[in-house]
């Protein structure tokens, strides 16, 4: 297995407050990795380090190293725009643009300079199919994306990310604002794309982590407590804290 992202000793500070205390985590290509842990444990914060979305927050300092393949993503010469093309993201709240479904999915490609209508059509269709939403929107491609339900909007957002063909897809609690049926569809989507994309998902739903992920990382109060194959972690966790969390003793 090749490692696509390697992070070493990642510390993150909001002002003076240290939110991540040295995280060492590696992600393998074409696998689904789940980050779990109670609220405030730093899992979303860590995820947002991977495509430098934390840059947008004032007063954040990050130390340590995060490499995408061999490139240090925090190196001064790194092109953040290019990094985010390679590492896409889906957010907790569905956030489609106030355009049509088609425009939403085609947008990233268009701005990347793709003008060929056939290529666009084809990529929009493929992406919507991968995101398991094609059947629901194929007759409404030119309607405003905001007219759809939250679950549908979220899958449109997934399709929008897939359309620009990133190498890594980050998902920050993508189903926490959705009903169970929509959540299941998002999970199907992730299972669909697992062989072509590296998926890193933050979730507070342990069942979800156990259902879809290959590996799971458990974070607590800014520390990485345990990182192993999902099956192993859920059956024989090494650390007592992991076991307590998985058994619902806290969190």
């Amino acid at each position: 297995m090749t490692k696509i992202i390697t992070s070493k000793d990642v510390h993150l500070y909001y002002g003076k407050k240290e939110a991540l205390h040295g995280i060492n985590l590696d992600f393998e290509e074409h696998q689904i990795t789940a980050l779990i842990g109670p609220s405030g444990c730093g899992k979303s914060t860590y995820l947002r380090c991977l495509n430098r979305m934390n840059d947008l927050i004032k007063g954040v300092t990050i130390t340590g190293s995060i490499k995408l393949e061999d490139e240090d993503i925090y190196a001064p010469q790194t092109d953040v725009v290019n990094l985010r093309k390679r590492v896409g993201m889906v957010f907790q709240q569905p956030n489609p643009f106030p355009f049509s479904v088609y425009e939403n999915v085609a947008y990233g490609l268009r701005l990347a300079g793709e003008k060929d209508k056939h290529v666009l059509d084809e990529r929009v269709e493929t992406s919507l199919k991968q995101a398991a939403i094609w059947d629901e929107v194929k007759d409404h491609l030119y309607e405003n994306a905001l007219a759809f339900s939250g679950g549908q909007q979220q899958r449109i957002c997934v399709a929008r990310v897939l359309a620009v063909q990133p190498e890594v897809v980050l998902l920050d609690e993508p189903t926490s604002a959705l009903d169970p049926i929509s959540s299941a569809k998002i999970e199907d989507t992730l299972m669909n794309i697992r062989h072509e994309y590296t998926v890193i998902i933050v979730t507070h739903n342990m069942q979800q982590a156990s259902r879809i992920s290959d590996k799971t990382a458990f974070l607590l109060n800014g520390d990485l407590v345990e990182f192993s194959k999902t099956e192993k972690m859920f059956i024989h966790p090494d650390d007592e804290k992991t076991s307590d969390y998985l058994n619902g003793k806290f969190g």
Binding site: N51, M53, L56, V81, N82, L83, R84, K85, R86, G88, M89, F91, Q93, N95, P96, F97, P98, F99, Y107, G108, L111, A112, C157, R160, V161, V164, P166
Partner: peptide
């Protein structure tokens, strides 16, 4: 215009300027 829209644009690999002119401004 919601901050989520800006994040969506930036996370798609759009530059800040393109996010503003292509997403925030139309909205």
């Amino acid at each position: 215009v919601s901050q989520l829209q800006r994040e969506a644009g930036l996370s798609l690999g759009l530059s800040r300027w393109k996010t503003i002119t292509g997403i925030v401004l139309p909205a």
